[in-house]
């Protein structure tokens, strides 16, 4: 991208960079400002704490980014988190050892990918807009979660299982390690593999993609399965952090995830987006949440501020597209 821009003209080069890295700049400014204002904000302890809090909806945001880049959306991820959490918890409850832990994580991701498979099939083969398909899944998955758990939290305090959310590797919290691994894998998938190119092609123009030989249906199916599996993974992570699975988990997380993607510059019109920028978007939300909390800002105001930032990001995106 940068290469092309600099080849064209110097002027567009700068705006391009600003467009691309503007949000990163905002993140750095936000963090620096809060560090000046709050004691202990710029400490490793605090940075890891922010990353840990971001990791779960940040992973969902990566999946959602894929969906948005194809021109779709996934509204079901919060509910899938709840479903995966109660499934994971019911597997791991009363057990010991890492075998069951891995099985629980696997099962949570499997349940998530089944939800994604359904989302994807309805979208790709049923030709139903993903907004509607995933809205249905959002209600359904939440219902199944309540059914499975009888509406109650399920205990998940197996030592091995909770050590994922509690422990750390060389001082890096376990959940952050997972976030980084997922981010790297997904970044490679999106930017270096043909799957990623197909995703962008569909988002750019479905018909052109078809003519160029992209199997749109299969690609969409893969995208929603990926998004579901990542939401399931986030559910398992949250369960291990909270020592319990709970059908109320993940409430409105889909919105945080979509906000992270959009703030990171993913265009809701499709065709534009990247994993690193999605992480930047998630971090902006995380830094803001933590900062506003530590400053003691009224929670009502926090919601208002958060809403304004999301709207600001979307307006910015609209402006960019008008110019392009």
């Amino acid at each position: 991208m940068i290469k092309e821009a600099s080849a064209n003209a110097r002027k567009t080069h700068y705006t391009e960079i600003l467009n691309k890295y503007g949000m990163l700049l905002i993140l750095i400014l936000l963090f620096s400002a809060l560090s000046l204002k709050i004691d202990g904000f710029a400490s490793f302890r605090n940075i890891f704490s922010i990353l840990e809090q971001v990791s779960m909806f940040g992973i969902i945001a990566i999946g959602v980014t894929f969906a948005i880049v194809t021109g779709g959306i996934d509204l079901s991820s919060g509910a899938v988190v709840a479903l995966a959490s109660v499934v994971g918890a019911s597997i791991v409850t009363g057990t010991e050892g890492y075998g069951m832990t891995i099985f629980a994580f696997g099962a949570a991701m499997f349940v998530g990918s089944i939800c994604g498979l359904i989302n994807g099939s309805i979208t790709a083969y049923g030709r139903i807009p993903p907004f509607i398909a995933t809205l249905g899944m959002m209600t359904m998955a939440r219902g199944v979660a309540q059914l499975v758990s009888n509406g109650r939290p399920i205990d998940a305090s197996s030592d091995a299982f909770t050590s994922i959310g509690d422990g750390s590797i060389f001082g890096v919290p376990g959940l952050v390690v997972i976030y980084v691994l997922v981010a790297i894998t997904c970044h490679i998938m999106m930017s270096r593999m043909s799957f990623g190119r197909h995703v962008f092609a569909i988002g750019g123009n479905v018909n052109t993609a078809k003519i160029c030989g992209v199997n749109v249906e299969i690609t969409l199916l893969k995208v929603y399965i990926l998004a579901g599996a990542l939401a399931g993974l986030a559910g398992a992570m949250l369960t291990s952090r909270a020592y319990a699975g709970n059908p109320t988990f993940g409430n409105m997380w889909e919105l945080d995830a979509i906000a992270a993607a959009v703030i990171g510059g993913t265009s809701l019109a499709g065709g534009v987006g990247s994993v690193p920028m999605c992480i930047v978007g998630a971090l902006i939300i995380g830094v803001m949440n933590k900062g506003l909390n530590m400053l003691g800002v009224d929670p009502y105001w926090q919601q208002i501020i958060k809403g304004m930032i999301i709207i600001g990001a979307v307006l910015l995106d609209a402006q960019k597209r008008k110019k392009a």
């Binding site: 704490s49 779960m56 952090r241």
Partner: peptide, 14 residues
């Protein structure tokens, strides 16, 4: 939201 509560606890401890 239970997970939000955990974050709040973390923040206070920090």
């Amino acid at each position: 939201d239970p997970s939000k509560m955990l974050n709040d606890v973390d923040n206070f401890i920090d």
